[in-house]
C-alpha cells in the first residue's frame, strides 16, 4: 500500500526574475515500510525532493499526499504539528543542539507532545537504548564521536515513533566504520521497527542497504 503519493510536482527557485527549475514534473509512490535511497549528482534536486516530502518546503506545483493527508493543504501551524508526529529527521551534520545533553536533545521533539516528564524520560531512555547510547545520555555533543552524535540524532528522530524517517546524507560526515554502524541501525529500524525510510545519499554502499534506489538527474527521475 502506498504511504507517500507524489503527483506531478515541480519546484523552482527564483533569483531576481530568473526562474531556476530544480524539480520537474515528478510522480512516484513510496509504499509503507519501504527503505528508499535517492541518488544523483550534486544539484540534481535530491535534497529538495526530500525537503518537500518532509514538509519543510512546498512544491511550486503538484501534490504530495502522505498517509492520506495532502500536506500542501496544511497551514504552517498544522504542517509543523504534522511534521512533529509523522516525520523523523536525520541530518548529514547531525544538527544536535550543542548546549543540550544527549538526553535533552532526544527529548526535544517530545516537548511538543502532552507526555508527562516521566513518560518522556521512558521514551528517551528507550530510544537511546535502541541506538546503544543509554550510557552516554548525560554527555554533550562535543563529548561524543561523529558516529555517536549521529546515533543520538537517530534517537531524536525515532523518539516520537514517527511513520517516516527522512535522512539527508546520514553517513556523509562519517568514517567508513561509523557509516557502516549507522546504516546497520537504519536497516534495523526499517526491518525491526517497520519505519519507512527515505534517504538521500551519494554513498553507493549506503544505497546498497536500501530496498529501492531512485536516481535523480537535472530535476527529473531517471
Amino acid at each position: 500500500m502506498s504511504l507517500v503519493a507524489i503527483k506531478n510536482i515541480s519546484k523552482s527557485y527564483w533569483r531576481d526574475s530568473l526562474e531556476i527549475p530544480v524539480l520537474r514534473n515528478i510522480s512516484f509512490d513510496i509504499p509503507e515500510g519501504e527503505f528508499l535511497a535517492l541518488m544523483g549528482p550534486s544539484g540534481s534536486g535530491k535534497t529538495t525532493l526530500l525537503n518537500l516530502i518532509a514538509g519543510i518546503d512546498r512544491p511550486t506545483t503538484g501534490s504530495i499526499v502522505i498517509g492520506g493527508t495532502d500536506i500542501g493543504g496544511l497551514g504552517e501551524t498544522a504542517l509543523a504539528q504534522w511534521r512533529s508526529r509523522i516525520m523523523g529527521f536525520i541530518f548529514q551534520f547531525y544538527n544536535l543542539l550543542p548546549v543540550l545533553t544527549a538526553f535533552e536533545n532526544v527529548e526535544l521533539p517530545l516537548l511538543l507532545t502532552k507526555l508527562s516528564s516521566k513518560e518522556r524520560r521512558d521514551h528517551v531512555e528507550f530510544a537511546l537504548k535502541i541506538v546503544g547510547l543509554e550510557e552516554r545520555m548525560r554527555h554533550y555533543p562535543k563529548q561524543l564521536s561523529g558516529g555517536q552524535e549521529q546515533r543520538v540524532a537517530i534517537a531524536r528522530a525515532i523518539v516520537t515513533d514517527p511513520t517516516i524517517l527522512v535522512a539527508d546524507e546520514p553517513t556523509g560526515d562519517l568514517d567508513k566504520v561509523s557509516a557502516e554502524e549507522i546504516m546497520k541501525l537504519l536497516d534495523r529500524l526499517n526491518s525491526e521497527f517497520k519505519k519507512t525510510i527515505i534517504m538521500v545519499t551519494h554513498d553507493p554502499r549506503a544505497a546498497e542497504r536500501a530496498h529501492l534506489v531512485r536516481h535523480l538527474d537535472k530535476g527529473e527521475l531517471s
Binding site: A54, I56, E76, T77, A80, Q81, R83, S84, R85, F89, F91, F93, N95, L97, L108, P109, L112, R156
Partner: peptide
Amino acid sequence: TVEIGTLRSLGFRR
C-alpha cells in the same frame, strides 16, 4: 541559524 532550522523542522513553531 542551523539550530533554529533544526528546531523548526522538528515541529517547533515560529
